[in-house]
Design a binder for these strands. Structure first.
Lengths: 256, 256
DNA sequence: AAAATTGGTTTCACAATATGAAACATAGAA
DNA sequence: TTCTATGTTTCATATTGTGAAACCAATTTT
């Protein structure tokens, strides 16, 4: 058994918040059923959330919904993530130059966490990425870009700790194949994701080192395959590498 | 006394989260001191937050920080706010046409809550608005734009329930003056904020009705006074009213 | 219209759970 | 070394959260 929450209610409270966020609007019975909570307990948790201003109850339907107080908190958190402040102008520039949506991630264990994105204007199809959401390193462009710059043992550790699943028919699930791919990434200076993570989406990614010289960040341009044939990839590569150079320089200089 | 939290720890948990968000990184002692919590209690709360993945402890310094899990939750919440999906393209268009930052708010009691913003690219000076943060109705462009379209009694109720303070020398703190201003807004179709809320910032705002025909939303273009003389305001007015018409139409049609 | 069902709200006796004083551990400063 | 400042763990205690059951108010069914 993997140790329990030092505060029982805390788990319940966040479960409720999470469910409110997920559903947008939900009734007491559905909620308590979904979470396996006693009706009264669920009610008390909701009352508490309302008391604190994180939830509200719809007058008409009696259903419960989240307020935007969490969103405010989230934005406070983001405003403190100073890497974002530094790289955003570059990401914008890259988006303008290419017309495609740009993502920026930070490594966290065997995952990458989205910490910024700049969406393309023209782009009809929107990527479903969300700031704060995660993507595994082993099957994403940004992930491969980062792992490629790590020591062999670390790459292997990440592979072994990851739960390898075929998300699409193109997902690499064999370690030796993965290693070959990494070698390619090192040669080119950027990584490609050919629908390995989500069908219909290709992306070009490049990693960045932090102040300590450790691989920590990566960014990517992603677009539907229809706009990402080999010629286009070749064309975009230049922009990506250029942006990478600029950002790396500024990140290093910022807090030497 | 105004009734207490049905779950005591809940308050403490969110106080801690809020403080983590605010400070970015904080030690146990500072935290417990700041919140008036017992050292052990603070420690337990933090342990619980870490257990759930909402906080982490810096290996090197021992200090505690928020993770991005809350941010993910916040974005889930925002993705459910469908008004945003509808109006964003219009806000973008407005930003592109004017080159100025555009805000979109929803009324909540005597406040307006920011639910979307599109920042101008060129803009050197960044507004400090945050999605989810609040601004009083009585002293903001968006607020006046909304109140102007309400019944007299509702306007008065809002005024009386608001805590009127002079945020700047230009803030209107007299009700009869406020009413005159509202009359002007009705005539023009848009509201102006001449540094009434923040010195150095002017904005043009316009309100929108929801599906039920109730005044519920508003949007604004804001910019530093240096770029907002009377000529410029006159020039921008057209864009604002145009955007307002388009959005109102689409909001009404969406779920008739 | 009466009865039954459904969802939200309140009460209350009980014990599980959060509490905080105090002791402990560790690292850096004097 | 000793002192001081932080973070961590223990443990006896009662405060706090718990959930069964009763309650209320709309709907829906009969």
């Amino acid at each position: 058994m993997e140790q329990k929450n030092p505060i029982q209610v805390a788990g319940r409270i966040f479960d409720v918040m999470e469910l409110l966020a997920e559903s947008g609007s939900i009734g007491l019975m559905d909620l308590s059923g979904e979470l396996g909570l006693n009706k009264t307990t669920a009610y008390r948790v909701l009352s508490s959330l309302i008391y604190m201003g994180y939830a509200r109850q719809d007058e008409a339907t009696g259903k419960y919904e989240p307020t935007l107080k969490i969103v405010d908190m989230a934005n406070k958190i983001m405003s403190k993530v100073d890497v974002v402040q530094i790289v955003r102008p570059h990401l914008r520039k890259l988006m303008e130059a290419t017309g495609e949506t740009v993502h920026f991630v930070e490594r966290d264990g065997t995952d990458a966490v989205y910490i910024d994105k700049v969406e393309s204007f023209t782009n009809g199809i929107q990527m479903v990425s969300r700031i704060g959401s995660r993507i595994p390193l082993y099957c994403s462009g940004v992930g491969k870009a980062m792992v490629a710059q790590m020591d062999e043992w670390e790459a292997e550790e990440i592979w072994n700790s990851s739960e390898i699943v075929s998300l699409t028919p193109y997902t690499v699930t064999d370690y030796s194949e993965f290693k070959k791919e990494l070698e390619l990434v090192r040669q080119r200076g950027y990584a490609l994701d050919n629908e390995e993570n989500e069908i219909g989406v290709r992306c070009i990614a490049c990693s960045l080192k932090d102040v300590m010289g450790k691989v920590k960040y990566a960014f990517s341009i992603s677009a539907p395959v229809s706009r990402m044939d080999n010629d286009r990839i070749h064309e975009l590569t230049g922009y990506v590498l250029e942006a990478g150079r600029e950002m790396e320089e500024q990140l290093a200089g910022g807090a030497g």
